[in-house]
Write a protein that binds this DNA or RNA. Structure first.
Lengths: 141, 141
DNA sequence: TATATAGTTGACTGATCGTTCTTGAAAAGC
DNA sequence: GCTTTTCAAGAACGATCAGTCAACTATATA
């Protein structure tokens, strides 16, 4: 009972995931999420509890559906989680570890390839050459 | 002429590199570097210009000496640079790209393996199992 | 229709961010 | 011994950080 939520949780989680995978966990502020989703800070906190809580939901949503498998979306979320959270957060580590096992028999290779591709670096020997997107500008922060 | 520097630049850069590769670029504050090095904020800025400037020197120092090759130190710095800076910073991207080419013929695999190891995740099929260090605690930030 | 419950909103918190400035101390060249 | 130059040190800058709170609004139940 009471007032109904004005947004779809799944939609907001999806948008949050897009933001996290692009700009990283530490690189994404609550204000960034407010702007991206159009949802008020207070409502985000009411619905998701904390930045970490929202990230974990985003991670969950991005990693499930193992059908996607090698999807850049899931891989990017995993990369962000692995580098920024996993070393110091057991819950995140365990979730990503489970995902890793569903990633063929050479998850290290798949993650490494995506990491380089995401960074705009092409690999030459056997891999197919890949162009880099031009997202420039140093930026302080 | 003038007063002499009270610290070795190389030493400070080395300590900064250790800090960056452990806690990431965004996860490392100037205060963290002040505490780790024992050098005053003003002196760090006088000597290195900016946080990014110091990181680039740390990256340079960590990646050179290709003899080390697969050293965790160089790999961790490369990982941090690739995930946090490289997508939006051409100078960092180019420096890491050059390092990548010196990394045997499967840099993607080497980076991926180190990423998982750094996160405390073991890989099972052919790779040797590796224990995880226990650096716990979620932490806000 | 009244009451209870839950969501929205905007202002606000203290902490921390990267960076700069001013003042004073050390050392090199004259 | 001066002067000039460089560095050290502390305080301070505005901006931004994650998170909170009280007032208001909408809805579901009774």
């Amino acid at each position: 009972m009471g007032r109904r939520r004005s947004f779809s949780e799944a939609d907001v989680i999806s948008i949050a995931a897009n933001t996290f995978l692009r700009t990283g966990y530490g690189g994404t502020s609550i204000d960034d999420l407010v702007e991206a989703t159009g949802i008020h800070r207070g409502s985000l906190y009411k619905a998701f509890g904390s930045k970490r809580g929202l990230f974990i939901l985003a991670l969950e949503q991005g990693l499930e559906g193992s059908e996607s498998g090698f999807g850049a979306r899931a891989l990017d979320l995993a990369l962000v989680a692995l580098l920024e959270l996993a070393p110091r957060d057991a819950e995140v580590r365990d979730r990503v570890a489970a995902f890793i096992t569903t990633l063929a028999d050479d998850p290290d290779r798949i993650l490494g390839l995506r990491l380089l591709s995401r960074a705009g670096i092409a690999i030459h020997p056997p891999g197919i050459k890949k162009g880099q997107e031009s997202n420039e500008r140093p930026s302080d922060r």
